[in-house]
Amino acid sequence: MNVFRILGDVSHLLAMIILLLKIWRSKSCAGISGKSQILFALVFTTRYLDLLTNFISIYNTVMKIIFLACSYTTVYMIYGKYRNTFDSENDSFRLEFLLVPVTGLSFLENYNFTPLEILWTFSIYLESVAILPQLFMISKTGEAETITTHYLFFLGLYRTLYLANWIWRYHTESFYDQIAVVSGVVQTIFYCDFFYLYVTKVLKGKKLSLP
């Protein structure tokens, strides 16, 4: 476990907590894509099935349970408790455009043709594109609340730190998980445009709005 990995996990957790706090305190999930949150819940569910079969460490188990809990709570907030505030009109990304290719690819390109491995691979591929409905929603409405941009920033930071973690692990442990690395690079690229807007607008105290 290296410092990039720990900081990456902390950023990931922070992103999820920021999102939950935003919804909780404003009693509203306006501007949040429920579809992205459903995809993230699906990502964690299919990836963490190994909670039942394989013990790695206390840290690993506890974090997985926290991630699952945060993710399902967020989905419940959007489609249950605060569904009146959910902007379903603008959350119009077609999920089948992501789910069909991701499912196909996870059957074609995996480490082992076993149900658990295919589901793990599915979760890795799906995570790399799961934020697209959220980014699509922002580009459609042309703006995002500042707190939503903080959420996206920490999510992107988590991805970037994981890249550093993999470089570190490659040099120190000769560890190289090709599926995770390639998907991780793709996923991080999706955040680049957003990072630019975050630094040039949000950090200077302006609201993120697109021309």
């Binding site: 990995r5 190994d50 991630f67 994981y162 998980d177 995770a180």
Partner: peptide, 10 residues
């Protein structure tokens, strides 16, 4: 190659 002992990352 295949990661040993399952996947240890989150």
């Amino acid at each position: 190659q295949e990661p040993k002992e399952g996947h240890d990352e989150l």
